[in-house]
Design a protein around this nucleic acid. Structure first.
Lengths: 178, 178
DNA sequence: ATCCAGTTTTTGTGATCACAAATATTGCCA
DNA sequence: TGGCAATATTTGTGATCACAAAAACTGGAT
């Protein structure tokens, strides 16, 4: 577990950890995560895990089965359409709001990220591509600090990421041909 | 506590209960809510309250102070602008998506709600007005069942509602003249 | 009366436990 | 060998406890 000690509570650390894992595609759609399993894996008790999972479930990054078990959600065609639709309207607005805050320094940073993205594509490093790609977008949106749009956008990304990362192992994609 | 027994877990019941309370303006901005306080008030132990509060905090319906205490968030001019902006782009899309699903029965229901809203305005029943107003919007958006847009929209409403309900007691509004 | 140090109370966090329900495993019979 | 019932295990939920930090309260000195 990557401890960033500035985070106060254990629950917060676990949450950040799992969130990053989700965004980086370390959890495949359909697999179920258990409290005790993660507790042992991360070396903490059940409580911080419970609360972190509850948080991620609230953000729709994870879903609850009818019996209360937690799993990484699977993608459907309809849901993907809605997520794309949500991304478009939310991030369009976030980008517009960011415009006044864009200075030369930020353009420099974004330009660098864009170059790095190109390099990732050249060496077919899709894993790194997804991370740089995410960083590019979030850097832009965070230019205009917004406690309203950022959580909404993050929730959408958390819902898309596990599916998007499936392209890292293309053989699984056939499950989604409906 | 209003128990709807079809809800399975205690945590779920507490969550729904608090959410409704937030939407109906039963919690004023700035007041802090405590785990033990609610536990005693609702007659349950601390655990379900903890998880419900964690959920509502994740949805930004409640906020965490730097010391971990939970309170009903205060409104700022900037935040209100962003919330309105978010409502416009999210609910605009939700309404568009709903169009194909609107049938005569739904038009009837919406029309009835609209009449009830008018009546609320006539008798200056702002409390009831807010509820009918909310029901009108959510009835429309839920026409196209979306597990993506509804939670996002709900989060925005949860953030606006406590402030909106302040108009129920106008004397508090002067706190927000900045 | 006002301010501040010292004390008491309240609070969130994390750990652990009992319990019932859901799930996985086993072993038997056809 | 394949299906199914009985058993064993795993799981989430809710309760309770200890602890440290934060907040509220108290009392006296200026």
């Amino acid at each position: 577990m990557t401890k960033s000690l500035k985070d106060k509570t254990l629950q917060e650390q676990v949450y950040e950890n799992l969130k990053l894992g989700l965004l980086n595609g370390e959890f495949k759609p359909g697999v179920s995560v258990t409290i005790r399993g993660l507790a042992e894996e991360l070396g903490v008790s059940a409580m911080p895990i419970r609360e972190a999972l509850r948080r991620l479930t609230t953000e729709r990054a994870l879903v609850l089965t009818p019996t209360g078990r937690v799993r990484v959600p699977c993608m459907t065609r309809k849901k993907l359409n809605q997520l794309v639709s949500a991304r478009i309207c939310l991030e369009k607005q976030a980008a517009i709001d960011a415009i006044p805050y864009i200075d030369d320094e930020m353009i420099e940073a974004l330009s660098l990220l864009n170059d790095e993205i190109d390099q990732c594509i050249e060496r077919n490093d899709y894993q790194a591509y997804l991370q740089k790609h995410r960083r590019f977008h979030f850097t832009l949106y965070q230019a205009a600090p917004s406690d309203v749009f950022m959580p909404l956008i993050e929730s959408v990304w958390l819902q898309v990421s596990p599916f998007l990362s499936l392209t890292l192992s293309l053989e699984h994609l056939q499950s989604y041909n409906t």
